[in-house]
C-alpha cells in the first residue's frame, strides 16, 4: 500500500480540498505570496496571516516522468507523474499522476486540469490533459 500524507495544520486544506473539487493553495494575506508546500508562516514577509484559497485548478506541465518500474506488488505501470506550474499561484508547482491519456502522450507545455480521488480522509490529486497546449 502506498503511504498517505500525515495530515497537519499546514497541509490539511490541500489534502482534503478535493472533497469539494477544489485545489487549495496557501497564500499570504499580507503580501499575497503563494506558498507550497503550505506553511503557516509566509517565508517572504514572515506574516502569520496565511490561509488556504481555492485556485482555478488548471496549470501547465513543467516536467514529467513515465514510471515503468513496479515499486511494490500490484502497482500498475506505466504511468506518468507530472510537475505542474499552477495557474493563479505564482511559483507553485503541484506534482501528481496524469490520468485520461496514454502515459507516453504526456508532454512538457501540455495544459492540464486537476481531478481528485479519495483515499481514506485524503483526496489525492490527479492531472487530466486539456485539449489546448501552451506554446
Amino acid at each position: 500500500m502506498r503511504p498517505l500524507p500525515e495530515l497537519t495544520a499546514e497541509n490539511t486544506a490541500f489534502w482534503t480540498g478535493g472533497a469539494r473539487g477544489q485545489l487549495m493553495i496557501a497564500f499570504c494575506d499580507h503580501c499575497q505570496n503563494a506558498i507550497h508546500p503550505p506553511q503557516v508562516i509566509c517565508p517572504a514577509c514572515q506574516s502569520r496571516h496565511v490561509g488556504p484559497r481555492a485556485v482555478e485548478g488548471s496549470g501547465t506541465i513543467y516536467t514529467y516522468t513515465v514510471n515503468h518500474q513496479p515499486w511494490m506488488p500490484g502497482m500498475v505501470v506505466p504511468f506518468a507523474i507530472a510537475v505542474v506550474d499552477v495557474d493563479g499561484a505564482r511559483g507553485v508547482r503541484v506534482t501528481a499522476p496524469v490520468t485520461g491519456c496514454e502515459a507516453d502522450a504526456v508532454k512538457i507545455g501540455q495544459r492540464v486540469r486537476i481531478a481528485f480521488e479519495p483515499s481514506g480522509e485524503v483526496w489525492l490529486p490527479l492531472w487530466m490533459p486539456l485539449e489546448r497546449t501552451a506554446a
Partner: peptide
C-alpha cells in the same frame, strides 16, 4: 509526503 503519496515513490522519478 509531497512525493510518495502521489506515486513518485522512487528517487528515479
Amino acid at each position: 509526503s509531497w512525493l510518495v503519496p502521489v506515486g513518485a515513490m522512487s528517487a528515479s522519478n
